[in-house]
């Protein structure tokens, strides 16, 4: 991973799978969990961005 403009395919797959894991955790719940789910995804994006900054 060079920077946010150059996330390679392998990393994109890894990040996408983490997104799906979060979606899966909320999938079976019948209540409307949209806000907590989106908050959790926002946290994930923050973590990925931090990891990219640290690597640079």
């Amino acid at each position: 991973m060079k920077d946010a403009n150059h996330i390679d395919e392998l990393e994109l797959k890894k990040f996408s799978q983490r997104v799906i894991e979060i979606e899966r955790d909320y999938y079976f719940e019948k209540r409307d969990r949209t806000t907590p789910r989106r908050n959790k995804l926002t946290e994930l994006i923050d973590t990925i961005a931090n990891a990219i900054r640290e690597k640079k």
Partner: peptide, 20 residues
């Protein structure tokens, strides 16, 4: 700039999923 990076990550993952 930090927020731009986050948005790019978000958009890249989104595009990757759409392609999939």
């Amino acid at each position: 700039q930090i927020l731009v990076v986050k948005k790019r990550i978000c958009d890249s993952i989104c595009e990757y999923m759409k392609t999939n």
